[in-house]
């Protein structure tokens, strides 16, 4: 199978670094943001930021011609 490109993998590692390995840095109550404890706020923010990273990875993979198929209707 064609492996994903290095750039796409690096983009995917960002959410892992931010929400998994760094838990010791953000697992705290204060400072509260928007009335949420900091750890809740941080993880909710990454629900929104992860799609951004993966959108970048998607663009990379599409421009590389990964999963070209009959139904691939992307204009790019």
């Amino acid at each position: 199978m064609k492996r994903p490109s290095l750039g796409a993998v690096l983009l995917g590692l960002i959410p892992f670094a931010a929400t998994c390995f760094s838990v010791g840095l953000w697992d705290r109550v204060y400072p509260m943001v928007f009335g949420l404890p900091f750890n809740f706020f941080w993880l909710i923010a990454w629900l929104l930021l992860t799609p951004l990273c993966m959108w970048g990875a998607y663009r990379l993979e599409v421009s590389r011609g990964a999963d070209d198929d009959r139904a691939g209707s992307g204009a790019r």
Binding site: P15, F16, C20, F40, T50, M54
Partner: peptide, 15 residues
Amino acid sequence: LYILGYLPLMYVVSF
């Protein structure tokens, strides 16, 4: 919070 942690990451893996 582990649920909120793995949710986005499992889709990253699926990508």
